[in-house]
Design a protein around this nucleic acid. Sequence first.
DNA 1: AAAGTGTATGAATTCCTTTAGTACAGTCAG
DNA 2: CTGACTGTACTAAAGGAATTCATACACTTT
Lengths: 126, 126
Amino acid sequence: MIRLNYRDARPIYEQVRDGLRHLVVSGAIAEGERLPSVRALAASLAINPNTIQRAYAALEGEGYLLSEPGRGAFAAKGGGEGSRRRGELLRQFDASARELCFLGMTPTELAERIEQAAETKGGEGA
Amino acid sequence: MIRLNYRDARPIYEQVRDGLRHLVVSGAIAEGERLPSVRALAASLAINPNTIQRAYAALEGEGYLLSEPGRGAFAAKGGGEGSRRRGELLRQFDASARELCFLGMTPTELAERIEQAAETKGGEGA
DNA sequence: AAAGTGTATGAATTCCTTTAGTACAGTCAG
DNA sequence: CTGACTGTACTAAAGGAATTCATACACTTT
């Protein structure tokens, strides 16, 4: 389900967070579906439950997760209109588009890329 | 020229790197123009020359800078076709576009944003 | 009651950033 | 050539921030 890369400089909780987010965005985990428990996933990845908890908390902040104490964590639709995650993505989108244009790419080229990216379900977290 | 924000969690060398990159991308520093020397900029910002050097090295890796030992550092066109920076930006662009589409934005909406972003010269580093 | 769930807290460790000092090799004006 | 400038390399140290862990608590369900 999720692969940890200890050679990577990125902290484990980020790898878990991005991996889980990808599973939700790609539809591998449907909306409302329950995610593995903190301890179960921790045991599965052979890491501390707290590290998983941190990833879950971050995803809940982004709106991709809804945690219910005592019950479990369930996948959600994702950030709404004015969510933090949406704002972050828009800034990232604008900044990269702007610089890519400076590097010679035309808005038309980039627009075509969007279509292509929208279809593809692959790709890893930002 | 560049403002450091010590309250910001971002490390100084990143602020310097992003600030300088923005100066090049926005055209404030023209192609071929010489940048302040490592020691001069360090003194100007009241920080260690090593920190500036780190920012310069990063920018050279991105293709926005060309360092000539003994002569100085000069602004460059930016990443070429297959540069590391270009690849990084494309991944960032694709990932954000993909997730924004998942969140409900249409490719058309995003395409319009590109036009808007291409004109604007503002914005801070990613 | 028992086993599961998410959550809070504090400590330890590890990593990163920054600084400082020193040194080397190159360029250029005098 | 001399001297002042340039970028670069290296080590060491200090400080702080971030990551990870162990433990305990509150809740839900069976």
